[in-house]
Amino acid sequence: MTADLATYNFAYLDEQTKRMIRRAILKAIAIPGYQVPFASREMPMPYGWGTGGVQVTASIIGRQDVLKVIDQGADDTTNAVSIRAFFQKVADVAVTTHTKDATIIQTRHRIPEQKLTEDQVLVYQVPIPEPLRFLEPRETETRKMHALEEYGLMHVKLYEDIAQNGRISKTYAYPVKVDGRYVMDPSPTPKFDNPKMHMSDALQLFGAGREKRIYAVPPHTEVVSLDFEDYPFEIQTFEQDCALCGAHGVYLDEVVLDDRGGRMFVCSDTDHCEDRREHGHVGAMLAPNQEAAE
């Protein structure tokens, strides 16, 4: 292991790059929701793999950290497994799948169901950091809109959506306003998770590698999903409980069971689901088996 480590700098990035990213992170925290440009480095993985999040994690991680990596709520997808293995190799850090044991959680697409604490940092992998991009392709223009707090067009677009669909159809990457100032893209997390960003005990950092942006939401900071008085923001609700652990009020994924249309809904947060089952909670899918065994 020592020989392996010797061929890399700790956490892969050189010290100069880490310093530059660290300075960007401090400014991002000081200006909640504002996108700080940074000189993104080539990482030994393709851009779609969360190189922005990886660079943020690499710049903050230390020997004492315990890292958790999730993709769509799961610890065992290829993306999550690869990133976890990368940091085990280049930083020799402890890793975990348990939310409560992690000091740094790098995520793609979900915020864990378990409430995060003051001792944790959530690092988001962001593909498109600019919430105004779909309105205006030019960076100089979107930057000006943020500078002048010109978010009227954003509201108009959302309202047009209501006029067409009877509701705001955006179900993920649903725009938020941070500390009453900057409109921010919460990354492609489902809007179900937006309320968890509000007044979180944990620091939230966002890294976009291809777009070269870092932004942040400090702990205990207002994060409000954009909405209208007559059309208030609503999260997705699920009629079912988790088929495996019986959890209610969590984000569920649909799983196809067979080719005869059989399907079930299960927790997207696999650690949350496993933890509940370990504590004796049983969902409908597992409960009948128990009865049969009696």
Partner: peptide, 16 residues
């Protein structure tokens, strides 16, 4: 490498 990481984490926590 490790000492600057340690100081930075305190700075990050302090700024947050």
């Amino acid at each position: 490498v490790f000492q600057s990481q340690s100081v930075f984490r305190k700075l990050m926590d302090g700024m947050a």
